[in-house]
Nucleic acid binder design. Structure first.
Lengths: 340, 340
DNA sequence: ACAGCTTCCGAAAACGATTTCGTGTTAATA
DNA sequence: TATTAACACGAAATCGTTTTCGGAAGCTGT
């Protein structure tokens, strides 16, 4: 009943030729006579022969797999990146191995070390918050030292030399803040996370830059730093209640969505009393009520570019150690959470 | 500069012993003398030796990879399943290779065939809509015939004999409909998709069963079948405008969220004039405004169970061909889109 | 002093494929 | 007829690991 996979050896034995002959015949080598080739090819097709990927990987020292290690999969942004990576990788014949670090340094290290032992030809990664907090990148330095190509996206670090893809986070925050100022907002707050997260830091910077440009002084009371990536409802509620903001920029969409709910519960009208802009532009932004003005991070594009850069490095012969950082432009998408 | 990975051969040459000795020493074999083992182990640690996964896979004919093929990654449900699979698989030392079929029959076949050639020890899959439409499962039959374990979840078929994990879709729809009836709703509509999707069919069945139980006759005008998984705004708008429904059940959350927006734009109050219940209970349901009463599909649990069943099959010696279908109970989560 | 045991280690096959090189046969050329 | 070239194929190494088997020492006991 069990139709086990057939190998070159089986074909060779059955047809009374050598394994080499079978191998060559199936690659249509000129070395083999027409009739022998036809015989072998027919037999192979009949028994649905497909070469064993593992054996080929071992021989070629190339797996045609790329490893994607991301902090989580719940944030819509990361799933769109996966989509982009998949899309491009597939056209080039690569599979995608997805590993979740779960925002944990230890899990990230484990995943990387596991995959680095031959399972993949290169990595696409976004740092876990744990890793950014520890500020320890030895696991990444090791793989680059071994010559395994690596592309970091979104959550990156200058500690590791490799290709990188990010959006201009500061610019995104700057544009959003500017938009709010120009709409007449006077007290613009920001809900961000701890500074060790590279993106949050940049976004806060862009926010401050815009304020400065318009002569608004930084006000610590308008900056709420969430201790983790999770929503702390109480903190947001207190912030909205006490800070007298008339606009809020958040570093992800969940903070905004949650903020809007709190604000509405407190009787504020959106966008009249308080307007909101969030980062990421995922499904939530589009379907929230009111819909959320947001800064698109172009995750799918980011995934495609990452995959393209990685595969380019994987397949390039020369060991030129030149790395580039691609910076995508964020896009402000206006919806009903700001005046339009 | 490049610190290439070290192999058994390198160690053997350097320490002037045989490869076999090195291999055994690193496994702490009793065959090797204490001093030789210590010497080899120290050397291996110093040069950070890690065995090559590919070589081991070839030798053992086991990759410690499991392939997950899903229709898309945008639906929150599938990402939660991935999480569950990852979670369980990692505890057992397995990696997860994710492939997206993009709802396409062809892409599903390609992915399966690629992975089946040695890359993975087993499959966890949910059928693409294209596959369910074509009703062609030869690619799956082939892998099961080869003895490769397969677990189907959510979108399954009776055409293939294998382990399966689903929620009781009919029950979910039944419970939701019953809830609506008991809340006094008189004209309960359903927004579903074409019948070839196994889950939509079951859910419609549950909906009809509840109606029948309460003596309500089926009314074709209350059933909207969307031609695809995508939201067709016009259809939904016409449906809400013309059908005079006072409650709507939808087979996913996006249809509900979209429906709520349309209803609100038309001046209906939710839940007073129209109440909504949607399947899936993703982020959208929780953060929508009003928040959406929904039927939780327990994706993460489903992923865990799928992984558990698969790994159990992979690691069991006996070739017993007994397959089971696990049916999870859906949970109705009440929020503000229904009266509470 | 010699059979019989341990103890410790290496040779070789195996997993499944690719590829280089060599060789026997035949046909073409001098 | 002798030489050579073209053709068709096979042997063997290789990728990195595991594992079986056998054998060389050294030791024990009689």
């Amino acid at each position: 009943m069990l139709k086990k996979k057939i190998t070159l050896k089986h074909i060779a034995r059955e047809l009374e030729v050598s394994i080499s002959t079978v191998s060559k015949a199936l690659k249509n080598s000129e070395e083999i006579s027409r009739e022998t080739k036809e015989k072998i090819q027919a037999f192979a097709k009949l028994y649905n022969y497909k070469p064993n990927n593992i054996a080929i990987s071992l021989k070629n020292k190339r797996t045609k797999n790329i490893g994607v290690v991301i902090p989580n999969i719940v944030h819509h942004f990361f799933t769109t990146v996966i989509r982009g990576v998949e899309k491009y990788a597939n056209t080039k014949g690569y599979n995608v191995i997805v590993c979740l670090s779960d925002e944990s340094f230890d899990k990230e290290v484990i995943n990387v070390e596991l995959l680095a032992n031959g399972s993949i030809d290169g990595f696409i990664m976004s740092l876990s918050s744990g890793t950014q907090k520890e500020n320890d990148y030895n696991h990444l330095k090791e793989i680059t030292e071994q010559g395994i190509p690596l592309v970091l996206f979104d959550r990156i670090t200058s500690e590791v030399e490799c290709d990188k893809v990010i959006i201009d986070d500061a610019l995104g925050a700057y544009l959003a803040t500017k938009k709010l100022i120009e709409q007449g907002r006077k007290r613009i707050g920001i809900i961000t996370t701890a500074d060790y997260l590279s993106v949050s830091k940049s976004r806060t910077k862009g926010y401050l830059k815009a304020l400065k440009e318009y002569g608004v002084n930084e006000d610590k009371e308008l900056i709420l730093k969430m201790p983790s990536m999770d929503v702390d409802g109480q903190l947001i509620q207190d912030f909205i209640k006490n800070s007298k903001v008339d606009a809020i920029l958040t570093v992800n969409e969940i903070f905004s969505i949650y903020g809007m709910q709190v604000a509405q519960d407190l009787g504020f009208k959106i966008p009249e009393d308080i307007s909101f802009i969030g980062f990421t532009d995922g499904l939530l932004s589009k379907y929230a009520n009111p819909s959320l003005t947001s800064i698109a991070q172009h995750g799918e594009r980011m995934g495609e570019i990452s995959a393209e850069m990685l595969i380019q490095k994987i397949e390039s012969e020369d060991e030129e150690e030149t790395y580039q950082t691609k910076i995508l432009e964020p896009t402000l998408i206006e919806r009903n959470s700001t005046i339009n």
